[in-house]
Structures are given as structure tokens and as C-alpha cells.
């Protein structure tokens, strides 16, 4: 933790970065994103198990970008988000400095996609056993049972879009749900509108979700939204050996075709 503060101070003092996006403490001992702009404020940075929010979505936030060159305290999901965003042309190489932690708890400064890619390779990027178990559980349900399960979950939705807004991959300035000519997806938070919204969002994340879990954490009514993407992540891994957010140059799996692609998934 000390090293993080030190690294942040260094970056700000040397002018290598104008803002360090990181975690700090709020009242009631909460953890929140903070934006350190002065070297002396670097002491406010913390990094512990409560630091789970995916900070990647702040790097392209207009007001934050405005400060100048950004550095970000980067947990694995943040790094993977950066790579995925890079592959989608949303961030450019050497634009962001990632302050990351190695598996043996060393603080490293990663200032290129190549360095981030190498760093990410040190970690397991597949679904965890717990996640796989959850997926198994939901896939073990029959079609009707699963439909009922999701219907019940979606009925809670109030269309606050916290899932979308918390997701680094949902960067569209106009979301497809906001397209009103024609209105493909109903705006109202009724069952039909909710189902269409969530399924559309999951589909738009196919091959792009880096499984940070923020959508589910952000949901004020506790819909387990990340369960939707687990399946997509597994399928793409099984069918195409593809995992999102591992490389800044990987091409989008669902819009590329290789000779060796199998078509067994078409059922």
C-alpha cells in the first residue's frame, strides 16, 4: 500500500501523470474511487480487498480526461478492461499508466499495452471455480425453470441503468436502448422492456465482457447480472479459445472468421 502511494506521488511529482485514479476511503469506512491530482494527496490512496470497483470506466470520462495524463491503480479487471478497450480503439497505447500489483505483491508501472499484456498473462483469467459452479447450477435448470428464474429477477429491474453505467465496456455515447427511431427496446421498466434490455446488453457484451462483476455489484435491486455473461465467456472460450481483454490487438472474435473455426455451436 505504501508503495502505491509512493508510486502515485512519483508520477504526479514528475509530471508523468496529472491524475491518479485510485481507491480511497469515504465516511462510514466505505471504499470509493478517488482522483488524486496533487502529490500530497497520494497518501489518501488505499488498496485492499474492498477495492473491487472497476476503475477503467473513469479513464474515458470526459471530466477526468480533462485533467491530463491519467494513471490508474489497476487491479486485474482494470488491466483487462484497458486491453479490451484498446482493442476497440477506445484508448491509445501509452496514453494511460497502469499502476499494477504483481502476483508477489510488487508495485509495477505499466505504460504500454505490451507491458499490460505481459502482466495479465501472470494471472488466471478464466472463470473461477465458484463462478463455474454457479454457471453449472443455472445451466442445470431446465429451460422453463431458467426462464422463470430470469423473469423473476428481471421483474425487479427499475431501469436505473446502473449496470450499464458501471460497465467499462458500455461506453457508447448513445446506448442502443436509447435509440428511439425505431424504438427497438421499450423504455418502460415492465417485464418485456426489462427482458429485452438485459438480453440485449448481455449480447452486446458477448466476447467483450472481462468479467469484473461490477454490473451485478452496482445493481440496487440485486439482479445477478454477471451470471448472464458467464455463459458467454465459457462458450467463447470453449468454441474459439477466446478470452476478452488479454490483448490490445486481438480482433473481435464474433466478427472474425478462421478456417479452423468449428460450427458445432450452431444447433
Amino acid at each position: 500500500m505504501l508503495e502505491i502511494k509512493q508510486k502515485a506521488r512519483e508520477l504526479l511529482e514528475s509530471g508523468k501523470a496529472q491524475v491518479v485514479i485510485g481507491y480511497g476511503k469515504g465516511p462510514n469506512n466505505t471504499t470509493r474511487a478517488i482522483f488524486v491530482r496533487k502529490p500530497e494527496d497520494a497518501d489518501k490512496l488505499v488498496l485492499d480487498d474492498t477495492c473491487v470497483q472497476n476503475l477503467a470506466l473513469y479513464i474515458y470520462k470526459h471530466e477526468v480526461r480533462h485533467f491530463g495524463k491519467e494513471a490508474v491503480v489497476a487491479t486485474l479487471p482494470v488491466l483487462r478492461s484497458l486491453l479490451q478497450l484498446a482493442s476497440e480503439n477506445q484508448v491509445k497505447d501509452n496514453e494511460i499508466i497502469a499502476i499494477a500489483i504483481t502476483p508477489d505483491n510488487k508495485v509495477v508501472e505499466l505504460d504500454s499495452f505490451a507491458a499490460i499484456e505481459e502482466h495479465v498473462r501472470l494471472f488466471n483469467t478464466g472463470l473461477t471455480e465458484d463462478e463455474k459452479d454457479l454457471l453449472k447450477k443455472i445451466n442445470a435448470m431446465g429451460l422453463e425453470e431458467r426462464w422463470a428464474f430470469w423473469n423473476k429477477e428481471f421483474s425487479k429491474c427499475i431501469k436505473c441503468y446502473a449496470c450499464r453505467q458501471s460497465c467499462p465496456m458500455c461506453y457508447c455515447p448513445r446506448c442502443a436502448a436509447e435509440v428511439n427511431q425505431p424504438q427497438w427496446i421499450p423504455v418502460a421498466a415492465h417485464q418485456h422492456g426489462n427482458i429485452e434490455w438485459h438480453i440485449m446488453r448481455a449480447m452486446h457484451l458477448a466476447g467483450r465482457c472481462i468479467n469484473c462483476g461490477d454490473c451485478a455489484r452496482a445493481c440496487p435491486v440485486d439482479i445477478p447480472l454477471n451470471l448472464l455473461t458467464y455463459n458467454l465467456i465459457e462458450e467463447l472460450n470453449n468454441e474459439f479459445k477466446y478470452t476478452a481483454g488479454l490483448s490490445a490487438s486481438q480482433t473481435y472474435v464474433l466478427s472474425t472468421w478462421k478456417l479452423e473455426d468449428k460450427e458445432t455451436f450452431i444447433r
Binding site: 482522483f35 470520462k61 477526468v64
Partner: peptide, 11 residues
Amino acid sequence: LRCIGCGACAF
């Protein structure tokens, strides 16, 4: 700065 612009608070 950290506000993500969702509607959870209002709703």
C-alpha cells in the same frame, strides 16, 4: 468525479 451517471439514487 466518481459519479457514473446511473439512476439508482433517483429511483
